[in-house]
């Protein structure tokens, strides 16, 4: 079984975000980069599946600057992935272009049975790449998976509004994107880290995949920090007085009731 995992490297959640002076994007210098948290779930699910099947190959794919994302790919291999492919680029790709690159890189590898991804990248907040990859490969998808079981293909649960769950039966090859709750990702072990250094990491360029700037559909511009919040108004008095005052403020000042 050939299993792929889409892995994006993103700034750590605690990072302070600063904008470039021309507002064309964020200042990348000084950021700490980590594996997108949902992609850790995708890696874990892929490893569990390979273990359950007793055979298979787990390949991690990342689109980004090789110098930076290699670290994340090595971590994934230290967790247990067999090999990695980096689509090396310094461009800031949008979802469409990224998905084109991933789809092409995976096709290049020959066959694929299942592609795991995260439900969302916490930097661009797009929640789009997995579905677009599925479309470009002409295979079905299910997103926001909280449970995946092998059953003549897969049975996948996804959470929808009101805590309800949809249960989908999906055939392979397919794309599944992972939500929190799917599993608890393992840590890389020390022997794992040593082994990972020798695992194959293949490099391809966007041009090798026949892709260029024309695949870019959305450009982000005029980056802005959120407006400063006015200082908090602290209410005083005993609990009863505070409660009365809050209701008054919500009705008369904030007008949200």
């Amino acid at each position: 079984m050939r299993i792929f995992v889409c892995l994006k490297q993103v700034p750590d959640t605690e990072s302070r975000i600063q904008l470039r002076p021309d507002k064309s994007g964020i200042e990348e210098a000084g950021l700490k980069w980590v594996i997108n948290p949902y992609d850790e779930l995708a890696i874990e699910e892929a490893l569990k599946l390979r273990e359950a099947k007793g055979q298979g190959q787990v390949t991690v794919v990342s689109v980004g600057p090789k110098g930076r994302v290699t670290d994340a790919l090595r971590t994934a291999m230290a967790m247990g992935a067999d090999d990695a492919v980096v689509v090396d680029t310094n461009e800031s790709l949008d979802s469409y272009w990224t998905a084109k690159a991933i789809a092409a890189a995976i096709k290049n590898e020959g066959s694929f049975d299942v592609i795991f991804a995260g439900k969302l990248a916490i930097d661009d907040n797009a929640a789009s790449v997995p579905q677009m990859v599925a479309e470009f490969l002409d295979i079905p998808h299910v997103t926001v998976a909280t449970k995946v079981t092998v059953d003549n293909g897969f049975v996948v649960e996804r959470e929808v509004e009101g805590g309800a769950r949809e249960i989908h039966a999906i055939q392979t090859p397919c794309v599944i994107s992972a939500n929190k709750g799917l599993n608890s990702p393992r840590y890389a072990s020390l022997p794992g880290i040593m082994k990972a250094k020798k695992k194959p990491l293949k490099e391809v360029a966007l041009a090798d995949l026949g892709l260029n700037q024309e695949q870019m559909k959305i450009r982000l511009k005029d980056f802005q920090l959120p407006p400063e919040k006015p200082k908090v108004k602290m209410l005083t008095g005993d609990a009863a007085t505070q409660a009365k005052e809050l209701v008054r403020l919500l009705m008369d000042e904030a007008k949200v009731l």
Binding site: Q131, H141, R158, V160
Partner: peptide
Amino acid sequence: SSMTRDLFPRVAARYNSGLAND
């Protein structure tokens, strides 16, 4: 919504178009 977020990136891709989510 759960449905539109799952569906529309795929439809946009089918139209060779971009989608701005959220």
